[in-house]
Design a binder for these strands. Structure first.
Length: 309
DNA sequence: TAAGATAAGAGGGACAT
DNA sequence: ATGTCAGTCTTATCTTA
């Protein structure tokens, strides 16, 4: 009798029933039948390309997957249809029509009822734009939304700048999914002071009790290499340099981008490629001075390496 | 002109008070 | 909570090859 459009139907991986329920606050999903939990559902990054109504079908290229954490209600709300027909297609009686009108009103109100949800809408209004600017994957955006929701649950949003926290969540999502984006990049593209983002990031790290992997210089390397137009051979050379440096334990506390850049520079020089420190510096977003300093360290470690062999 | 050196300052972590 | 300290990175400027 109600015409419901919902995309929450999903079979449980354990019991196979259509009883998956999602926790509205965190986006975690569990099976209402057997209790099977899919934690961190954003880990499975395959885009959901299902559609359950004509409108949604036409719309899906713009909105991404029909169920997204980046939509304020995760796209899981029910919508009461407007055609005033029952499930078999027969017109509704007059009294039922007025009932449905009333239900519709309450239904639409409840969707934005909580201030949390309004907050979330505000926070994610421009996320799509940012995604394009930083060339990020859907998975990272989903993770950003997941982290932001966690922060919201902890009450970290109140009294703080929403863009700052979104930026911090985004940076955190990048770190977590090993997508090398620097704090500076993120803050520049979102147009917030780096300091602010960095403060929020540390707050999240502390309050959410999360451990972030240290940025891998090797991941940064290929990015710098392509920025600077360096070849495969140079990259391989830089890789061994970085591995040596890791073994020598001189990498702790150093900026991974700087290490990667310095390794690439040294490798390029060794392999006869002509490249200036300036180019590397621009490609990595690190100053020439820092590149030089890292070069010094890496060269020392390389010398020691050769001597000990 | 590229590379190296030096100095001053910002921002943050560790640690003690 | 606040201050100090060592370490990193950045900006700016000067020197060297």
């Amino acid at each position: 009798m109600l015409s419901l459009d919902t995309d929450s139907y999903m079979k449980c991986a354990r019991c196979g029933k259509d009883t998956m329920v999602s926790d509205g606050s965190t986006g975690e999903r569990f099976c209402g039948g057997c209790g099977f939990v899919i934690d961190e559902r954003i880990e499975d990054s395959g885009p959901e390309r299902r559609s359950f109504s004509k409108e949604e079908h036409e719309d899906r290229t713009r909105t991404g997957g029909p169920s997204s954490l980046a939509i304020h209600d995760m796209g899981l709300s029910t919508v009461i249809g407007y055609d005033n027909k029952d499930a078999t297609g027969k017109p509704l009686s007059t009294s039922m029509k007025s009932t449905m009108t009333r239900l519709r009103t309450w239904d639409s109100r409840s969707q934005v009822h909580e201030s949390q949800e309004r907050n979330f809408r505000q926070a994610f209004g421009e996320l799509g734009r940012i995604k394009d600017k930083l060339a990020l994957s859907d998975a990272v955006i989903e993770k950003t939304a997941y982290i932001y929701r966690k922060a919201q649950d902890k009450g970290l949003v109140r009294g703080r700048s929403i863009p700052g926290l979104v930026a911090a969540s985004l940076y955190m999502a990048c770190r977590d999914s090993e997508t090398p984006r620097t704090l500076t990049e993120v803050s520049q593209k979102i147009n917030i002071k780096r300091k602010e983002v960095s403060r929020c990031y540390r707050l999240l790290l502390k309050e959410l009790d999360l451990k972030m992997p240290v940025q891998d210089p090797i991941k940064c390397m290929s990015r710098i290499a392509s920025n600077a137009g360096l070849g495969e051979k140079v990259k391989r050379g830089a890789l061994t340099i970085l591995e040596n440096a890791n073994n020598m334990e001189i990498t702790a506390g150093k900026s991974p981008m700087a290490l990667a850049g310095a390794a690439l520079y040294i490798s390029a020089v060794i392999n006869g490629g002509y490249i200036t420190q300036k180019v590397i510096a621009q490609a990595s977003g690190i100053t020439e001075v820092t590149i030089r300093n890292r070069c010094k360290g890496l060269r020392d470690s390389l010398k020691l390496c050769v001597l000990s062999q």
